[in-house]
Design a binder for these strands. Structure first.
Lengths: 341, 341
DNA sequence: ATCGTTTGCGGGAACGTTCCCGAAGATGAT
DNA sequence: ATCATCTTCGGGAACGTTCCCGCAAACGAT
């Protein structure tokens, strides 16, 4: 490999200077003759000198890279968050190492250990559905290792996080259905292990109670996060003695799976059953009727998470445990529109 | 930051050995007393010693990371490829640094230079639609810098690539429409700057000719890659004096944009116009009717690209210029099915 | 002339690791 | 007993950079 880059030594030798002086000249220090500096800078330019980042890392005992742990990135949710993170990290000279857990706690742990061995300066994490053991995270925190959770946060761990108010927006989604005349609303719930699932159930119940509707636990169907689960959920709905007139789903794929199944069984949406999803996806605009959904500020979320992490890294890891709650919004579309707003 | 890791020195000091001996013991060299080795290994284990990758990088003058340049990753196409790449790179101890060009040649260049400064050991690239200047790539090749293109390859550059036979599969898609009885087939074409666009046009024309159909240049509508472009394309179609009876689109988003517009204008799919997309996406199964599409072997593509690159890196960058052509397949669904197969 | 002070530069250690080379002590052969 | 050989280990340079320290020359002030 002929990748012998120009080093500071080459410049020093060419100009008959010491490496120290060249280093200081390039760093724009005061104790170097303006003419010397000029010569150094010009030669560096000419030779296309780029400082070797690896040796700098060794000096600083930092890798200037951060590890990201996500469950998947086939849906556009996490890619959009990554874009937000990169927009902060890139200008600051940090690299992002992305690692998928495929919803497996074991792989999640393996990836984190691997990234730790690679000396990342911090972690940005969205936990898998399987993750229950918080010991490792706790150890990181105890060692003041920079760590930020987003979206799916670990329970009972004192750590910085970037989230939306899932309860509130589940409330908004459910309330919207009620306003559209729904009186018997099913909730296709997420995995129990996830904090967001519980929060959204809470918001769903709150909305029912607020509007004087009964909370019927049998209307809360544990589903999951995938489209296939939505199909299964819809099949359970079809077997109900009394059909519901509204569905609030944990996310868009589940909502869409349910819609496909219901439609196939001759149920009209939104006339018979109105549907609302969560976490805006491209698919919402493609399914017919278009899906009403809660839109999360993905880019801003990534941005905030990265900023929070950099703050921790740069502040020599003082314990700046903070929770940032971002705003979301509801996109009302045909799947829930029974009457003009 | 209390990230003082255990170093080889710590172990040496604790056991009253030299760093050389500890290094050799951990590297399982022959010239070290079995008892000494045992002591070293055990203490390393106990102290949870992890070799500092940065100092190793400095020694090897390699960063053990590869840069990836992609136009976007909101669609699932590139994420799936990334997964394929990671499956190869991870076990070999290489990191992947992903960088988006947002279809901008300028940003693409900026990102590549930035990654070069970070001393990546190679590049895996899918060029942006804007990229026309191949000089930089040529320079890399001249310097024997490890480089692999996939999917969207640079023209006229002698370099390794991983692709599918776009011409062939465009042929298959078009032929399928012909077999379904289509006689007047529109092609919603991709950006002219892209190699794949030209290849798919060629395959489209070949199929028409092979089946004795006229090639009408006015039926080739330059579109782009986004759903919005598909909508515009469909609007052009609607203004045609004679409507076509089939559409072959450059990709799924364009096909779906077109379908939505056509449906809105009362055109039945596939009865009036049959539609085929390209590069299988999740959306194909969601749009109604479900979209017939050409499915690319994304994971295998990423895997092959990574293997090709590692081969170049490890072989000290000998010029192993190779082109790997992978198989694809057609998924026939309702959007093109006029008669049972 | 003598003494501080400024200005500009170089020496060398350090970051954590590997690896070449040499040096002991033990062992074997003559 | 002598010498070659094997075994086991340590010294030290190197990777590219920064940074602390010290040193010399030039300068001004006394």
């Amino acid at each position: 490999m002929i990748k012998s880059r120009v080093t500071i030594k080459d410049i020093a030798k060419a100009l008959n200077l010491s490496t120290s002086t060249v280093s200081r000249a390039l760093a724009d220090r005061w104790d170097v003759n303006p003419e010397t500096r000029k010569a150094v800078v010009e030669l560096a330019e000419k030779l296309n000198y780029m400082p070797n980042p690896i040796s700098l890392n060794l000096k600083h005992r930092q890798s200037f890279s951060v590890g990201m742990i996500i469950p998947e990135f086939i849906n556009s949710f996490f890619p959009e968050i990554i874009m937000g993170i990169q927009s902060v990290l890139e200008p600051e000279g940090y690299r992002l190492l992305i690692s998928q857990s495929n919803e497996s706690a074991e792989l999640e742990m393996k990836n984190m250990r691997s990234l730790e061995a690679k000396m990342v300066d911090g972690f940005i994490v969205s936990v898998s559905t399987e993750t229950t053991d918080m010991e490792y995270f706790q150890t990181l925190i105890d060692n003041h290792f920079p760590l930020v959770f987003f979206n799916r946060v670990a329970r009972n761990v004192p750590v910085s996080r970037v989230i939306i108010d899932d309860c509130k927006w589940a409330f908004v989604a459910t309330e919207h259905l009620i306003e559209q005349g729904c009186r018997r609303i099913v909730h296709l719930a997420g995995p129990e292990s996830l904090d967001v699932s519980a929060e959204r159930i809470r918001g769903y119940k709150d909305a029912l109670i607020r509007h004087g509707l009964p909370v019927d636990e049998s209307l809360i169907i544990p589903c999951g996060l995938l489209m296939e689960k939505g199909i299964l959920g819809a099949m359970q709905i079809l077997e109900m003695p009394v059909l519901p007139d509204g569905i609030f789903a944990i996310n868009d794929p589940v909502a869409i799976g349910a819609m496909k199944t219901l439609k196939k069984n001759g149920i009209r949406i939104p006339e018979d059953i109105a549907v609302v999803g969560f976490t805006e996806s491209k698919m919402a605009m493609i399914i017919e009727p278009n899906l009403t959904s809660i839109e999360q500020p993905t880019f801003a979320m990534g941005k905030a998470a990265a900023e929070l992490l950099l703050e921790q890294i740069k502040s020599n890891c003082e314990v700046t445990q903070r929770t940032i709650v971002l705003e979301a919004k509801i996109n009302i579309r045909e799947s829930s529109l029974r009457q003009p707003v």
